[in-house]
Each structure stands twice: as structure tokens, then as C-alpha cells.
């Protein structure tokens, strides 16, 4: 499984655990809803800066998003 898929799976799981919608995460990160959707479908290779924004929104460390 490549890192895009690891990120996609982790983001979806962590978001659900916090009962957040994709819209919520978009609002918290300032990223578009469409982009969040693409990350969760492993369509895009997010940057480390995006990992930082997502991690801040989910209140976790960025490494947790890419641990398989």
C-alpha cells in the first residue's frame, strides 16, 4: 500500500473517530471540501504542509497520519 492510501485510510478513520464531516475538516484546515475528498480517495499526493494542517485540525501529530 503506498503512502497516499495509508494517508487516505488514516484520515477517514481519524475523522470518523472525532465525528467530523469532510466539511468540518475543510473548515478547520482552510482546504477545499473537494481537496479533502481527493485525499480520502487517495487521488492526490498531499504535501507535508497539508499533513500539518490536517493534523492540527484533528489535534494529532502529523506522523500519525502516515503510520500504517
Amino acid at each position: 500500500m503506498d503512502l497516499k492510501h495509508v494517508l487516505a485510510t488514516n484520515l477517514r478513520r481519524l475523522r470518523h473517530e472525532r465525528e467530523l464531516t469532510q466539511e468540518d475538516v475543510a473548515g478547520l484546515t482552510g482546504l477545499s471540501l473537494r481537496y479533502i475528498g481527493s485525499v480520502e480517495r487517495a487521488r492526490v499526493s498531499a504535501s507535508v504542509t497539508v499533513l500539518g494542517k490536517l493534523a492540527m485540525a484533528l489535534k494529532i501529530d502529523p506522523c500519525e497520519l502516515i503510520i500504517s
Binding site: D2, A46, S47, V48, T49, I66
Partner: peptide, 19 residues
């Protein structure tokens, strides 16, 4: 800020997990 695809390649070159 690199993309995670590149992060993955650099990590394997160093023999560590990307995180």
C-alpha cells in the same frame, strides 16, 4: 514542503518508515 510520494521515496532510501 514535499509531497508524500517523495517523502516515501526518501524514507525508503534511508531505510526508515516515512512517519
Amino acid at each position: 514542503s514535499l509531497s508524500i510520494d517523495r517523502l516515501d521515496r526518501i524514507a525508503s532510501s534511508l531505510g526508515v518508515e516515512p512517519y
